[in-house]
Write a protein that binds this DNA or RNA. Structure first.
Lengths: 332, 332
DNA sequence: CTGAAAGCGCTTACAG
DNA sequence: CTGAAAGCGCTTACAG
């Protein structure tokens, strides 16, 4: 189908004995074509194996039929963490039947504003932006440029960009209450990165869920090593800690490693709660009690939100929170 | 930058006091433009915040500056497995500096040949195809249509499509030799799906590496559950098994679960070797001895192969095998 | 070094 | 229901 031999609309029209207008109408399923004409065109299309040239189409319609998934992440987190794959699957699921293509853009495209140029240069009809960090000007810029955007995850800035997020706060409240309910008295948290909403909201939720003082806090990025280090820090500062809420399963995995090294029994000596209910939660020993968030649903809902916006549907709620839920296993 | 107010090349030309031809030459870095003209054009572009319309460009150049990553996988494997994320990262790394965009296409796009139409309809300049299963006609079809394609993973059919793969065979040979070297006498394998080259080649390698008879075989798909079931099957048929080569870490995770349920000590009773050296290998207890393959490198090399082909470089070797290597940990 | 003109392959009023 | 014609925003010989 490539090269100069690719049949054009013109060729189809000749073969079918009609005008280009008629062929175009058939291709686009527009009304006002006789059965006879449609039949002839369909036959010619099949015979010539005609495929419309998308570039020509885009040029005149000023639409691209594709949307971007922008992954605003520099490091390895999204790849060592099943989070990203699930988002991707959800986004894909959300696009089913939309006849749109997904263009994947990553942080490295930021070199000399290439990302912004690309997004604003009419290459895509809209964008889903994932994994924003505090202070990222991208969402505001895209809004200014008039590009429809929906974020996965609450932005930390006070920008008026629609988003979909898990209810991190409530999930973390539940985690704290669960540990308290088990009779634990010395409960700590390993908080996630504070330049991302997930990190901030889970810390706030934990603090809100603790009835008494909540000041046994260590910080980690979303990695095994970070979790291991933070757990070591907690053990040193608070030797009597008997409950820990880790802001992500991957952090909990690191914490488990450190706890094993220190000969702590889980949950006897220390009860541990994670967050995510990722595949990690059931591959550890003991399996993790954790707060489930449906990441795939997050991707799907965000995408549907964007598509609805593109379809010009009634103004949707500007943001959506998806429920989270504690899942008990053997680590508590 | 969207909407009818977006500046065109024409507008830039007027603002700079030159012709459209000259502006086009400046944008495309073509020779034969006076410094004076270039300066004026650059200023006008900056002032108007001009971004070239890609659709118009594609139409006339017949290039899209994008390549497709086709993930030929229906089920959940690619998402419950870190494999896909690593491939994706590798592909991205391979594209750095190529000024091309990545369009991600998945199996669901196959509905009424939409995938093939899309790929052959001039939307992309070439494609990387991952995770092929036996009997998939896609690679041959794309080749016929003249679309440059490179596969991640050896195709099982005898098609003349270039590919890049890990040396699964040699890695599996090493795994078998390792178990033999440890003095194990009753060595089994949990083979992967036999409709994929990775499954076939790892089984063949294991058989080649075994000096004596190699007939203790169970099969699993690339999943925890599959691994658990296959391990149960092996234990029942061969109660004296003392070594197992699992064709993937995720299969080994399932095997570990079953072994724990049966009260088997690892590695004392049974030594276990995985394949991949994925993140799973170090989150299990005990940590897995496994065959390392560099999946990210796989994605990167494949992409560079494709880009070289697009650049019309000298004919490259039609296929490439990347080395694999045994990594010993505590499961053997 | 520069510009006028043709043309890429479609869609879309417009007139019939 | 149908077709002739204009035009989307670029690139690319071609002539100067």
């Amino acid at each position: 189908m490539r090269g100069s031999q690719a049949p054009t609309l013109e060729a189809v029209a000749r073969a079918a004995g009609v005008s280009r207008s008629t062929v175009s109408r058939v291709i686009n399923d527009l009304p006002g074509v006789s059965k006879r004409a449609k039949l002839a065109v369909d036959r010619a299309i099949a015979e010539l194996r005609y495929v419309p040239n998308q570039a020509a189409r885009n040029l005149v319609t000023r639409r691209t039929n594709s949307i971007a998934l922008v992954v605003s992440e520099r490091g390895d987190r999204l790849f060592s963490d099943p989070f990203f794959a699930k988002i991707l699957r959800g986004v894909y699921a959300g696009m089913v039947g939309s006849r749109r293509q997904l263009v994947l853009l990553m942080d490295q495209d930021r070199v000399d504003g290439a990302l912004e140029s690309y997004l604003c240069g009419g290459h895509v009809d809209g964008a889903v932006v994932v994994s924003l960090h505090r202070g990222d000007p991208l969402p505001a810029r895209l809004m200014e440029a008039g590009l429809p955007v929906v974020l996965v995850g609450r932005p930390l800035e006070d920008v008026n960009v629609p988003y979909v997020d898990s209810d991190n706060f409530t999930g973390a409240v539940e985690a704290a209450r669960h540990l308290i309910g088990l009779g634990r008295r010395r409960i700590a948290t390993i908080a996630g990165p504070q330049d991302m909403a997930a990190g901030v909201d889970r810390l706030n939720g934990w603090q809100a869920g603790m009835v008494e003082t909540a000041d046994m806090i260590a910080y980690a990025d979303f990695s095994v090593e970070g979790g291991a280090r933070a757990m070591a820090e907690l053990l040193q500062k608070y030797p009597d800690v008997d409950g820990v809420f880790a802001a992500a399963d991957i952090i909990a995995v690191g914490a488990l490693r450190t706890l094993a090294e220190h000969g702590k029994r889980i949950p006897d000596d220390i009860a541990l709660v994670g967050f995510d209910d990722s595949v990690l939660a059931t591959t550890t020993a003991p399996q993790l009690t954790t707060v489930r968030q449906d990441v795939e649903e997050l991707g799907r809902t965000t995408t549907q939100h964007l598509l609805a916006q593109l379809a010009g549907e009634q103004p949707l709620p500007s943001s959506v929170l998806l429920p989270t839920k504690l899942v008990q296993r053997s680590s508590t």
